[in-house]
Structure formats: C-alpha cells, structure tokens
Design a binder for these strands. Structure first.
Length: 466
RNA sequence: UCCCGUGUAGCUCAGCCGGUAGAGCAGGUGGCUGUUAACCACCGGGUCGGGGGUUCGAGUCCCUCCGCGGGAGCCA
C-alpha cells in the first residue's frame, strides 16, 4: 500500500474506515493496562504526530512493539478510525507495525521525550530536527522562504544570484573571510616581503561576500526590479543572540524609486510573508506561542493589520530626548541609535514596527543618497518590537560626482569601483533597496531567543560543528 | 572583544557555614481493562569541566584555563 504523510492521515475525514500506511519515527510509546500500546509517530509533515494503536495480538507485539523507544523508525499499516480516546480526532488501528531501524542504547539517545534546553539541543544540531520545536522552525523557515520568492515573483521581480566569492572588500560592511588556495606554511612573497596574491587562485586577494547589493544594482539598472536571496558571511567576532558568521540575506533593489517607495516595499514585503506563515503554518505558530514565546502568534496577527509608523531620524531623537528615560548611552543628533533606543521607540513609545528615515550621513554607508540638507542621507531602518532592526535600506546615490565625493570622504579606492560608478555614467536613475537578514526574520516570527536556533547548522565564532 | 553568570547521572536540576553525592525524567525488570510528558514497585547508572592552590579533609573556598549562556559593542 502506498504510504501517506501523517499530515494527510490526520486531515482525512474521507479516509475513515480505510486502510492506510504511515512511516516515520516514534515520539513516545505508552503501554496500556488493557494489553495494548499507543505509539505516536511523527514524519515531520506537520506538528502533530499520529497515534497508532497496537494490540497485543500483533505477532511482534511482545518482542518488538513493546521494546520501541523514542527515535525508532517504523512503518505502520492499519485502518484509520475515529479515536476512542481524547486528545486526537483520528488514529490508526494497526494491522502491522514494522520496525525499520532501532535506537541503539536508548538510555543514551540524546533526544528524549521531555523538555530539552535550547542550549543542549544546539550541541546536537544533527538530531535536533527530530524535536517538535525544530520541526516547527524548519517548516516555518521553509514557508517563509517560499513566500519571499512568491512575493517578488508576483510583483515581477527577477531573482539574481550574486557571487559568493568577491575580490573587492567593497561594501566595507565588516570583516571578511579570506578565500585562498595558497599554502599557509609556504606563502609566496613579493620583492618587498609582503604576500604575493598574484600567485593565489584568483590572482588577487579574494573573500566571501558580505553583501550582494553592489552586484545586484547592476541588474536593477537593467531589469528594474530584482532581488538577491543567498548566503552571506561576516567574520566579525560577534557573540550575540542576533549575529551569525554565515547567514542568508534578502536584498531587493528597485529602479526609478525613492526612499518612500523603498519603505512601502519593505512594509508590503514583511506583511506578505507574515500572512503566508500565519495561514500555512498555523499549527507551528501555535506551538511557538505555547512553547517558545507567548506572543509569537498574537504579535504577527496584530502586525499584518496595522500600518507601520514612519518617523524621521530627527523626530526619533526628539522622542528619545523627551522620553524622560535614563538611557545608558546619551542621545543626541548625529549619534546612531543604540539597542536601548530602538527598543524604546518600537516597544514602548510606538508599540508596533516603526520605520526610521533620513539618518545623519556620517553614520551611514557611502552609497546612500545625500539629501538636500547636505547633512542626512536617504536611509531607513525598520525596527520591530522584540528584535530591533530587522531591515536596513536606502535610496542609492545616483549622481556620479556626489557619489565620487562620498567615496573620497570614506577614503575608498575609486579605481576599484569603476564598474560600480559606470551605473552612474550610463543611464543613471534613482534607485533604492534594502537588506533583510533571513534568520532575524525567523527569530521574529517564532519568538526564538537566539538566532543560532533559526538556522539548521549555525556558524559563529568558535562554532562550526557538523 | 568587554561585562556578568554558569559547568554535578543520558537529560533537567538540588546539594546550607568545607566532613568523599541526591531527586525527577530517560533506561531495565515486574505489575496495572485506551493511554495523552500515563501510573505503582524495584534495579543499574557519577574522575562533581581540566589543571593548580588553601586545608587533617574540597562538589563546596582561592587562582587559572576551557566550554556554554546572557548583556554590550558591531551589524542583517
């Protein structure tokens, strides 16, 4: 008989009375006083396991079924029936339970049917997807990723795969991982004694990308609406709940668009993804609300229906100064917003996502468009309650001479950026975009306390196991 | 990188003012008329993160290293 998913079996009112086959892994086994066993089987297709009722009349009842422990893989065949017990609507009255794989040494099987700490599960990243928590996270992550592609596709965006390896330490967005095939024990040297990178694989220094933005701008200024969605690397020694050394980033870029267009896109984008997760993964969000963070579900529901607040950076400063709050870091025009400031604005003062716009030029990147006041740039951050900055974006400087001045001011080597400046020489247009850390989005949706649980195999300083 | 905390059974933890270790869960055995993190009884299970020091004696106090967590900086 053709096996079906647990999800299909649990959903199938039409299947009652029919023979079904499910295959998966044992979550728990309980033996009843009546001489029968209840086996909860999960196959990852949904949050709930299905209950298989195994009678003692099964030929392998005593020598196999009663020895099943958490983690064993089984195939169960039987009749789908309305459950006689409470707690589930349907269950399978088993004709047979076939053990596919045993758990050796069950006492030491790392995933036990009990509440584990997230810290412990992080140490067994290869087994944690078997828990209901990481099953839920994996399904939510997939749903969010699919929704992101769907949102852009429906709006006519083109997904552009920007390079992982780059030879410009361009973006200046942080420390980069070096990519090299040189023999570290026998480095080639130039006459002056420095390392001779002309002997390296690419003939020059190369690194893992910290952002696809500069590359994707080229495609924006030809295809109008584009985005990246791929892995990104930062070699910073950040030990926080919000940083990874390897993460996935989404960077849309739109032509003929200013900062307001950018902010509108960011808001529509977030709401689309949240709605998709709400409708497609209601079971997992409910689980998140029960077991991870109480407001996981209600927060998303409230968010999709209310407009994001938009305020100017200057206004944000005034709000902070008049808050009456004692901040650890003093607030003044020209300083960047600290975590405590962001949290006050979005959590206390406004109580919902807020888009802060037009930051002082001195604290923002060289490619952001200079405003007419000559002091601020057309940059925006989307701040969300509970996590802080979730999106950072800007209108790009499209005027060649202004951009060159900004680059000189940032002491960048203009020679290395000629290809980037070409966009401003040949048919330049105003354009805008933003960057979103995918794992931060997952953290926000699920209510997770640590970004290392939002990606299957986290990479961070001193952490690259599995 | 800085600050704070933490490391005891397979897992989660308790262990007072220093006197060589306990519980729950998990596992094993037996019992129990459909269970929902089942229940009851019994059993096995520990170089108390590593090293050094103080002391008659260290899981406990001190130093140090390592791991982990939280916060900060930086950012997505």
């Amino acid at each position: 008989m053709k096996p079906m998913s647990v999800k299909a079996a649990l959903a199938g009112h039409d299947l009652v009375g029919q023979k079904v086959t499910v295959q998966g892994w044992v979550r728990t086994r309980r033996d009843s006083k009546a001489g029968l066993s209840f086996i909860h089987i999960s196959d990852g297709s949904c949050q709930d396991p299905i209950q298989v009722v195994a009678q003692s009349s099964l030929s392998n009842y005593a020598n196999e079924v009663q020895k099943l422990t958490t983690g064993c893989s089984v195939i169960a065949e039987g009749t789908l029936v309305a459950s006689q017990g409470k707690g589930q609507s349907f269950e399978i009255q088993a004709d047979s339970v076939t053990v596919v794989g045993w758990v050796e040494d069950p006492e030491h099987y790392p995933v036990q049917p009990k509440a584990h700490t997230m810290e412990y599960l992080r140490e067994i990243a290869h087994l944690r997807p078997r828990t209901n928590t990481f099953g839920a996270i994996a399904r939510i992550r997939n749903t969010a990723a699919q929704a992101i592609h769907r949102f852009f596709h429906e709006q006519g965006f083109v997904w552009v795969n920007t390079p992982i390896i780059t030879t410009s330490d361009a973006e200046g967005a942080g420390q980069m991982f070096r990519v090299s095939t040189l023999d570290l024990n026998n480095l080639p040297r130039t006459d002056k004694g420095s390392i001779d990178f002309s002997k390296d694989f690419f003939g020059k220094e190369s690194f893992l990308t910290v952002s696809g933005q500069l590359n994707v701008e080229a495609y924006c200024l030809a295809l109008s609406k584009v985005y990246t969605f791929g892995p990104t690397f930062r070699a910073e020694n950040s030990n926080t709940t919000r940083h990874l050394a390897e993460f996935w980033m989404i960077e849309p870029e739109i032509a003929f668009a200013n900062l307001a267009d950018d902010a509108n896109l960011a808001e529509a984008f977030l709401k689309y993804v949240f709605r998709a997760v709400l409708s497609e993964r209601a079971d997992d969000l409910k689980f998140c609300a029960e077991r991870i963070e109480k407001t996981a579900l209600s927060r998303l529901e409230a968010l999709v229906d209310q407009p994001f607040e938009r305020i100017d950076y200057g206004e944000a400063i005034r709000l902070l100064q008049s808050s009456g709050k004692q901040f650890e870091y003093p607030i003044a025009w020209g300083s960047d917003l600290q975590t405590e400031h962001e949290r006050y604005l979005t959590e206390e003062k406004i109580g919902r996502p807020v888009i802060v716009m037009n930051y002082p030029a001195d604290i923002k990147a060289f490619y952001m468009r200079m405003n007419d006041d000559g002091k601020t740039v057309a940059a925006m951050d989307v701040l969300a309650p509970g996590i802080g900055e979730i999106i950072g974006g800007s209108q790009r400087e499209e005027r060649l001479s202004v951009l060159e001045d900004r680059m000189r001011h940032h002491k960048l080597d203009l020679g290395a950026y000629q290809w980037y400046l070409d966009f401003r020489r040949y048919g330049t247009v105003p354009h805008s975009g933003f960057g979103l850390g995918f794992e931060r989005l997952i953290v926000y949706i699920t209510g997770l306390g640590n970004i290392r649980d939002a990606i299957p195999y986290p990479r961070a300083p001193h952490l690259a196991s599995f």
